[in-house]
Amino acid sequence: MIRIRGLTKRLGTKQVLDGVDLDIGKGESVVVMGRSGTGKSVLLKHVIGLMTPDQGSIEIDGQEIVGLKEHDLDEVRKRFGMLFQGAALFDSLTVGENVGLALREHQRLDEREVRRRVAERLEWVGLSGVEDMKPASLSGGMRKRVGLARAIAMDPQVILYDEPTTGLDPIMADVIDQLIRGLQRRLGVTTVVVTHDLVSAYKLADRIAMLHDGKVVFTGTVDETRHTQDPLVRQFVQGSSQGPIAV
């Protein structure tokens, strides 16, 4: 489904991505772990064409997206949903308008159908009846869930999640994890989650990949990750300041 090869990206003076290889299968849930600032968000932004790599290739369903024109990228993007780290809700719009924006912009649906769909997606994330609220008046967990409702409004085949649970209390984090897993299992959505939250990673992943120093240094199932002898991964999993990862 998604095939990343040799992706490199330099930002400022920092080589953020330095040859990333990663495969994500159809309907699979892959969690990309890594320390803050290793370039997890940068990686996701490449997958959806918000950033262009210096080198490397990204294929979506066999189609190379590196070097595509914005217009052609848009066709690819319509199959994607993305939940941003800070939810990135449009704060000049109401919650309902946020969730319905892509529907109104891209599909010729009548207003009643849009409203029905918006209400349905908000119900899926457990937030019925908040359509008329402004994002500014929502709590962190609610913002994330509205962001999620917006990401799934267009029935995407792939959803990218940038730190969906970071900064939430453990109970709200579990609610979000359940939603993500539910969408993947129920609708067969290909899922890419970027996080440094291990609890989430274990709950969400079919496969875990570890990003370190601009490369994917490890991939494995949850069990393989738990019991790996790889010193980098062990240090991360055990949350230790001692080891090969320099602090």
């Binding site: 993305m82 800070g86 449009f90 704060d91 912009e105």
Partner: peptide, 16 residues
């Protein structure tokens, strides 16, 4: 909008 990634969000939704 730029620093809170709302511009990125628009582009990700295929809205120029």
């Amino acid at each position: 909008m730029k620093v809170t990634e709302q511009i990125d969000a628009l582009r990700a939704m295929a809205i120029h």
